[in-house]
């Protein structure tokens, strides 16, 4: 990593994206304290993760990509063990374990051996283990890895629920998940930050598309307009330009020309489009992990 600098505000949900070998997992591991940085610094809640690692890690919950748990232990036993290791006082442990079981919706398997659970349940047990001490910062590496569509929906709602009262950093190669869950996305490539902005602002409005009759040309200030005949007098106008009010301005221009409008919609970029564009402009590779 070279000069990667990230600052997450309290309550923010940030997605970390990047192609294979971009440095995502290294970044996550350095933040989680699994790896020590060769240079630079990491602070969690104002505590330096290198000079005061125990205090810094105490306020952090980490879900590694493998979502590994001790397979010979019961779910409840595992969570009690994690609570003890994570410094939860003995008198609060039972309540914290119950709360984690409830939040991650795994109360029905609390007495089962974790090794006997499905992948989806194990993922939730690992997540419960990461939040059992009620950390203010949650770092999740591929939290939806290997989940089926139902489990994906549950995981998404769980993450949204957890994000309500803590800071969350999610590393994932499933861009649609980041798009749905995160308010901000950071794209890294070649070990440096290539883009860092709110997801909506990253996607921006690439332009708008109108299907109209009665006009075959249109001028919109600050935009270029391409025309494509559709037959029966209808034409599609692809209007490309900047600014959040492009659609309104285009609509006004069409109305002033007396056009019949059957469709006028924003053409927003998907996060995947943004991802590819950012990496291409940085001379990096396409999407993947």
């Amino acid at each position: 990593m070279r000069g990667v600098s990230l600052e997450l505000d309290r309550g923010e949900v940030v997605g970390l994206l990047g192609p294979n070998g971009a440095g995502k997992s290294s970044t996550i591991r350095v933040i989680a304290g699994v790896l020590e940085p060769h240079g630079g610094r990491v602070t969690i809640g104002g505590r330096d993760a290198v000079s005061d690692p125990v205090a810094a890690r105490a306020s952090l919950g980490y879900l590694p990509e493998s979502a590994a748990v001790y397979s010979e232990m019961s779910v409840q036993g595992y969570l009690s063990h994690r609570a003890a290791v994570l410094g939860v006082p003995r008198r609060e442990r039972r309540a914290r374990v119950e709360s984690s079981l409830e939040r991650c919706r795994i109360g029905d398997v609390s007495r089962k051996r974790t090794g006997a659970l499905s992948k989806g349940y194990r993922q939730r047990v690992a997540l419960a283990g990461a939040i059992v001490h009620d950390p203010s910062v949650l770092v999740l590496d591929e939290p939806t890895n290997g989940l089926d569509p139902n489990q994906l929906r549950d995981a998404r709602s769980l993450i949204a629920d957890l994000a309500a009262d803590r800071t969350v950093l999610i590393c994932s190669h499933v861009l649609s998940e980041i798009e749905r869950v995160c308010g901000r996305a950071v794209i890294i490539g070649g070990g440096r930050v290539l883009a860092d902005a709110a997801v909506d602002s990253l996607r921006g409005t690439g332009g708008c598309v109108a299907e109209v009759r009665g006009v075959d040309r249109l001028a919109v200030e600050g935009a270029t307009v391409e025309t494509e005949p559709l037959g029966d007098g209808w034409v599609r106008l692809v209007i490309r330009g900047a600014g959040p009010d492009l659609r309104e301005r285009s609509g006004a221009a069409l109305a002033s020309r007396g056009a019949v409008i059957r469709e006028l919609r924003d053409e927003t970029e998907s996060l995947e489009d943004v991802f590819v564009r950012v990496l291409e402009s940085a001379g990096d590779e396409g999407p993947g992990r």
């Binding site: 690692p53 125990v54 205090a55 890690r57 980490y62 590694p64 493998s66 397979s71």
Partner: peptide, 14 residues
């Protein structure tokens, strides 16, 4: 081998 080492290393223990 099982990957739980990452969980251990990220815990607030020396």
């Amino acid at each position: 081998r099982t990957g739980t080492m990452e969980v251990v290393l990220s815990s607030p223990v020396r």
